[in-house]
Nucleic acid binder design. Structure first.
Lengths: 253, 253
DNA sequence: CGGCCATTTGAACGCGCTCAAGCGCGGTGG
DNA sequence: CCACCGCGCTTGAGCGCGTTCAAATGGCCG
């Protein structure tokens, strides 16, 4: 079963929802123009492929239309660290100077839209305040996410990191959802989760199983991750949910 | 001895160098105007004090004129993680929404300049391309720095983290220097270094001593940190120096 | 049914932590 | 001037969390 087919079951809002989110706030004519631009520059990548490699030349700016993307850095010994995970309607900025600071890796089948700088300038000319406000909000949210994760990467236990990971991604996946069922799909192997939270895949497994055995989560159906006891998870992760929501989710949603 | 007195010995360029760096690229009239703005809004904080607390309301934008600043996040159990260290001529963006995502902590006596949003807009009106270009370069460098550090925080050994820490700060401190003597001042306790690299102060001590015993560095005069064998340090840190320089240093320098 | 990949579990090791005591140095007050 | 104090650095001992290595199990697809 494809990733889209799976998430279609779990998420509300079908294909096209990303476009709505991204053009949200624009007037009608700008909206059609931007949507056209996005569709024109859209490209597909299969799960497991690299969209950009660290050190490659790249456009400064990508929009993720669909699928999950990991931003990876790696050491010579082969160890990989995922710096951030990018979800649909979010933005990838591989950094200035035209050279990417990390691998951009497709966790699932992915549709992204490379936005060349001159196109961006055109958009800005069309609707300057909205465009940059929106970008600034997205990148502030990304910074906050990374800081929060870094805190736990440096100071937290394995359990705390996993609990935080589950909470963060649940919040982000269901940010624009109104249903409260605490069920979502994590299209990542335990290896990839480990690369994200700084643990070996073996210990990710052990930690998830412990949470599962204690009834806090349910991973028996590995297409759906269920958080049974959100308060306990948030407590283990040392999260103040409302504060975290305000910080890591772009406000307009 | 004050921090300024110490660094005056080590660094080239006296007081006022920060102003020059920050207004670099502006025309003469803009330069005087910006310098005046900076001096008008400048505030001093003693070493050890907090400039902003996590969750506080704050201006969106600070310029560090002098001294070292740590951006800290902490867990309830008291563990602290330093997300980034800000040096003179660099910028603090405590994040959008007017609420700071972290403590802003003075590692030394510090002079910062809070720039309210409306002032920023005025500056932008005066010289729009320069201002935002410069800010974007600074924040791209900050992102790259944090990613590079996060890689080692999640995947590297204690030795690698310490070696990377030394290299990063040496590069940044001496970025605008032409002398190549590999001597600089680190105004941080081992406790604070530990909070930055995710190690206990005890282990920071052990690791520094080991590097020192092997002749790679010299910390006997704790006002000056000396890197004796830069290649070995860079090798331990798994750094490609030229690539790192390009990534983490704002280009105009 | 067989092959492949992800997950699970066990065993043993070791890195980095905690706790605790000793040392060195600068500042302060008698 | 020296005694004292406090803070940061140093070093030792012992422990525990998370790692590595290895093997078994499970699930999906050809």
């Amino acid at each position: 079963m494809s990733y889209e087919a799976i998430t279609a079951k779990v998420r509300s809002g079908g294909p096209g929802a990303s476009f709505d989110q991204m053009t949200h706030g624009l007037n009608a004519s700008a909206k059609t123009r931007v949507t056209a631009l996005l569709q024109r520059n859209a490209r597909r990548y299969p799960a497991g492929s690299n969209i950009i490699l660290e050190g490659d030349e790249s456009d400064p700016f990508f929009l993720v239309l669909d699928g999950w993307v990991a931003l990876n850095k790696s050491l010579e010994d082969g160890h990989v660290q995922t710096i951030d995970i990018i979800l649909p309607a979010d933005v990838i900025m591989p950094s200035a100077e035209g050279v990417s600071a990390f691998d951009v890796h497709a966790l699932t089948d992915v549709t992204v839209c490379a936005v060349p700088m001159q196109e961006l300038d055109k958009l800005e000319a069309a609707d300057p305040p909205h465009m940059w406000t929106s970008i600034r909000a997205l990148s502030a949210a990304a910074k906050a996410r990374i800081a929060e994760r870094m805190l736990r990467l440096g100071q937290g236990s394995a359990e705390m990191r996993i609990a935080y990971f589950l909470t963060e991604l649940y919040l982000r996946v269901s940010a624009c959802n109104d249903n409260q069922d605490m069920v979502f799909h994590l299209p990542m192997t335990q290896q990839q989760i480990g690369e994200f939270v700084g643990l070996s895949s073996v210990h990710v497994c052990r930690t998830l199983r412990r949470l599962s055995r204690n009834g806090l989560i349910d991973t028996s159906d590995h297409l759906k991750t269920v958080i049974n006891d959100f308060d306990s998870i948030a407590n283990i992760a040392q999260i103040d949910i409302n504060q975290l929501k305000a910080e890591i989710l772009p406000s307009d949603c």
